[in-house]
Design a protein around this nucleic acid. Sequence first.
DNA 1: GTAAGTGCAAAATGTTTGCATTTCT
DNA 2: AGAAATGCAAACATTTTGCACTTAC
Lengths: 131, 131
Amino acid sequence: MPGGRNTKQKQHIISILKNADRPLSINEIYNKIIKHLPRIAKSTIYRNIDLLLENNLIEKFHLNDSEIFYRFKEHRNDHAHYIICNECKSVYNLPTCPIREIEASIEAEGFTIKEHQIQINGICKHCSTNM
Amino acid sequence: MPGGRNTKQKQHIISILKNADRPLSINEIYNKIIKHLPRIAKSTIYRNIDLLLENNLIEKFHLNDSEIFYRFKEHRNDHAHYIICNECKSVYNLPTCPIREIEASIEAEGFTIKEHQIQINGICKHCSTNM
DNA sequence: GTAAGTGCAAAATGTTTGCATTTCT
DNA sequence: AGAAATGCAAACATTTTGCACTTAC
């Protein structure tokens, strides 16, 4: 089991995130999980989320304003390049990494790039036809 | 005065942000401002920051992990395209917007882009020579 | 003068921690 | 058996709110 022991709490958290079609907040995870594990404590979710983050299995997002969401990574070295619908919060991947082209010129200036992220917000096709 | 009345609290907050060479957190603003206005309440800073955000004079960042920072906008329609040094937190602007080139293809898929942001983190020239 | 803004204290929110108990391995 | 994880309650940190007082206009 990645990131420690295989508890049913952790199983549920992973499966909830894996099956979600968009990033979830701690509360959303909690509200889903209590249906199956009514006695689970929120601190358990916080602790497991930390473990999963440390083990690079999930990633953290700041969507709208200050709300924090988590998403299961398909590939451990995914890096954040997303198109997010403000309505339904669906997350699409960017097909290419537009940073790659300008990376060289930035590094030429003496800046060492450690990570980068790109986020595009808007309204997806589906939501715009339903409005 | 943009965003309401011209109080000395607001004057100070604006001038602190204008003169900062990097984004500042609420606490950093507070610690600077109490030197001049010892009785200022943190809630006043929160309220003014909200006002300035609504009036599009400053913008909000999530730097490292969950720390929130604010920065004075040079131009009201600046959009976030930054290169940030993880060490000294200096913020540099990206010379070009690499999104522009892929915008058309995303919109062609039926997605309406509302806003986007790009953030590149790393170590700046100055900090890497001092290590 | 009056409405907006402030300071203060209290409340609400979100997250973390300590500890006794439970559960994996 | 032993270590790690859990549930619970309390602690913490951050942000928001209510209200009487002050200040800008």
